[in-house]
Amino acid sequence: MTELAEFWEMIWPELGRGLVITLRLSTGSLLIGLLIGFPIALMRVYGARWMKTLATIYVDLLRGTPLLVQLFFIYYGLADPNINQLLVRLGLPEGLLVLEPLTAAYLALGCNSGAYQAEYLRGAIQAIDAGQMIAARALGLSRLQAIRYIIMPQALRLVIAPWSNEVAYMVKYTSVVYIIAVQDLFGETRRIMSTHYNQMTMLPFVGMIYLVIVLLITWGMGHLEQHFHIPGLQIDVERG
């Protein structure tokens, strides 16, 4: 018992630091993803043809290529000397796109999540009966008002469930950023393992930490869904 306590005391400072970075990275990337995903979804559903095309290209590109490729592109690709030269020629500061590992991680995870969040929200918007928009317009509400007061409040409720998946995925996906030397929870774990050769203790232990976070999120999002649920709506019945 004391052995474990000692070990814990030894690794905790590093692991704790890593955990904080993982949580920050998850939250930040999800927010960036939301900021990207929301307008992309609106463009795909309500936009003019060129907006739809643009949004579709974005979504397909980011969902259709590996996250690691995206991460490397942003971290290593953008740091390419030729790109740097181009920036200088355009009158932009030198090294603008030579990013810190953590910055690159935020960007890659955020842009990637944006594509998924856009799709979840689009799905939710399109799941709403077309009659809602027609009735709103028939009352005299403008299209924008109808989207804001009638469609969005319903779509955002519907999107909570898929969105909680995205939150859980994000927490786990952040673990790939160790590969560009971000010291997140998994990065710290690898460091500890490389000096202590204790994989069989560390990996289950860290796995448990991820698991607890994901369970807490699932639980919290479930409550959020309950909180915003609409009395008498069909979804209740289906859930039984």
Binding site: A138, I230, L233
Partner: peptide
């Protein structure tokens, strides 16, 4: 100026 009532009601569910 023109009220409309639909076959499937279309009340705003939320």
């Amino acid at each position: 100026k023109v009220g409309m009532v639909f076959q499937d009601f279309n009340l705003f569910t939320h």
